[in-house]
Design a protein around this nucleic acid. Sequence first.
DNA 1: TGCAAGTTGTAGAT
DNA 2: ATCTACAACTTGCA
Length: 535
Amino acid sequence: MMWFRKSLRLHDNPTLKACMENADTVLPVFILDKWHSNPQNVGDVRFEFIMQSLRNLDENLRKSGIKSGLIFVRGEPEKVLPKIWDAAEIKAIGFDDSEEPEKHCRQIDEDVTELAHKANVEVHNEPAHWMHPPGLYEQRLNGGDVPTNMSGFETLFSRCGDVRKPIDAPSKIPFAEDEGRKAIDAIKDKLKVKDLQVPKESDETFYKNMNRERRKLRFPGGEDEALKRLKKVIEDQPEWVAKFEKPKTAPNGIEPQTTVISPYLNSGCLSFRRAWHAVKKAEKEAKGKPTQPPISLAGQLLWREHWYTIGWFTDEDISKMRGNPLARQIPWDWDDQAKELFEKWEKGQTGYPFVDAIMTQLREEGWIHHLARHMVACFLTRGDIFVSWEKGFEVFDRLLIDADWSVNSCNWMWLSCSAFFYQYFRCYSPIAFGKKTDANGDYIRKYVPVLKNFPAKYIYEPWKAPQDVQEKAKCIIGKDYPDRIIEDHTATSKENMNRIKEAYDKHKQEQQEANGKKRGSKTSGGGSIKKKQKS
DNA sequence: TGCAAGTTGTAGAT
DNA sequence: ATCTACAACTTGCA
């Protein structure tokens, strides 16, 4: 059997290939667990993205000869899987991904592997979610610390050799019809369910039971969609690829100015290796000299890989501040007022149109540009509201269709000046930042339509518009659109800089004290990452 | 110990 | 478009 997890695709799926060898029937299974079912963890848009990816996988499996389609089960993998392999007399299980840095997933991997061994079920496990397998990084680290900056990671990456070429999707997957149907009946019996099909978009009962609204997606899920997008944004435009400079792309284009392949990479609808080689090929085909990491498109793939090594090789939970060896300890606010401001930030009711537009796009479409993430992350944390990045992490994790535990954690630490980046005096202005690339405020007009009639002069700061202008725009500030939750961004951000400085000073002092105590013994330096012991 | 570098700030000058 | 001041962070390497 093939247990699909985070590689929802047929192309470049080495575990699927391993499952096919010596098997006369492959049973593909997806388990929707409790965590993903809960709307507080996974929002409706992100959920629908997963469902669409599953429907497309189901379709492609059927086309490849799996008459039963994808077996869809709700439950916990550790409980469901043993029942399936008992009922269907499974000899081997493959799961596509045991390299997820998230601690929760790693525990499930270990539990399932152990259960399978006990039940005499062979386990296939081929790395599929990284460009190089984590074990190779560990080897090439050769006992050294995991790099915490991009140049260090580039060195490590280059020591790992070439990224393996992606393998093609199988044209035919073995499925002996009688045997397959018998197995499926036995599974239904054992799990006491009537149906093992992936719920359709039209299945109202399913959505009602899940306590979810059905959503139309701007970026639809699925392997077909992923490959279509890869072709459009990378394979078909090598010159654009070679010229790509991430910091120069606008956060507020009406059409995304970046590739938007991250949701497909993250869900495994698209293979990282496939994307890497597509980018490299495009760079070669282009006339000019391609841009280089970290700003190039290849660089973007390296960033993700970099954050994955950080997540993987850090024992502690990096999505939290306390006990996190990477994160500066900062006394963020969390009183009643801070909670209220946080909620307004989340709902896109800060009274700062650019911030509110971004948060609205996030909620409605599940994707926002990287620099838009910077804007709202800075605003929530060190810039204006002074609420912990952990709260922002949770919101992004729920709403983003490309929500990725390690990447999300590391970027929130970055933006809040908790790790990797420390120039807290560089602060995004909710008024100035968006103006640079969208002076007319078209992006705001789209996502905060109540403001759409304001003249460009006031669209980023409508509270400055005189009464008659507000009336003419049919939008009174404080009535039709909220007042600013932070009266004075400039003054507040200055105060907050001082608070960060205080936290840094305290950190420095504590480090000096610790070093003083340890005089004579080797200091390992705060924040260094210990190498994970292979268990 | 000193200095350069760090994907992606702002405001104001030229 | 490219410069500077702002006030000055940390890490890595020589």
